[in-house]
């Protein structure tokens, strides 16, 4: 068995040298360091998010916010409540990351070029959404650009299905209800001003217009 594997390996190494297809290096591209490539398996090749895995767009987020959230996950402040199924998928990803690694990932992802998500929700009331968003803009900015001082992440260009689910999660106390998560607690209170899924839809529908 061992012998066979070695043979195959040698064989592969030899043929690898004579690629039949021309390969062009794209020198301008920003490349994810190999040790963080596992993040892209869920969050998309360019950190643009992946609806099939319920993983949000990270490319638009700041390094401060990403660092805070990774730290929250690692310290079991986020992604531990029994019904937070998706958060609990993310949480174990952070357990074996050191503080330095969290910093490095946050720096790298924070510097990525923004990839704006495409709108997927339909049928929202943009006028009502704008009115409701007035309550959000104090922290998240008039254009949904986010505010570092308020620890409020950027919303414009985020996946609408993610915003929708997070607003639901805050309302259902699946997020922001853990000691140590002050900005989360604020957001939990703020989410109560959205009466129901209809209101969430409208506000998310409006946020979709901010990216353009």
């Amino acid at each position: 068995m061992k012998k066979l594997s070695m043979k195959i390996l040698t064989f592969l190494l030899v043929v690898s040298a004579v690629s039949t297809l021309s390969v062009n290096v794209l020198a301008q591209d920003i490349v994810t360091p190999q040790r963080y490539e596992f993040c892209t398996v869920c969050h998309g090749a360019s950190f643009q998010g992946n609806s099939s895995i319920d993983a949000p767009n990270l490319s638009i987020l700041s390094s401060t916010y990403i660092k805070q959230q990774l730290t929250n996950y690692k310290q079991s402040i986020r992604g531990t409540l029994p019904d937070d199924i998706i958060g609990r998928e993310m949480q174990p990803m952070t357990l074996e990351l050191s503080a330095e690694e969290i910093n490095a990932i946050a720096e790298f992802v924070g510097d990525l070029p923004d990839k704006l998500a495409k709108a997927t929700v339909e049928g929202g009331d943009v006028v009502r959404g704008r009115r409701l968003y007035a309550g959000c803009s104090a922290c998240h900015g008039l254009k949904g650009e986010g505010n570092e001082a308020m620890k409020a992440p950027r919303l414009a260009g985020q996946n609408d299905w993610y915003l929708f689910r997070q607003l639901q999660s805050y309302k259902q106390r699946l997020r922001g209800d853990t000691p140590g998560d002050m900005p989360g607690a604020q957001m939990l209170s703020a989410s109560q001003m959205l009466a129901d899924d209809r209101a969430i839809l409208d506000v998310v529908f409006y946020i979709n217009t901010l990216a353009n």
Partner: peptide, 29 residues
């Protein structure tokens, strides 16, 4: 375009057969 040894590389083929799991394909432009 794929990522390999710290670089993005572009390869052009006449045909492509793709077995990437579909849920991961959602994250590939």
């Amino acid at each position: 375009v794929y990522s390999h040894e710290g670089k993005h590389k572009k390869i052009s083929a006449d045909y492509c057969f793709n077995s990437i799991p579909l849920p991961l394909m959602t994250g590939v432009d």
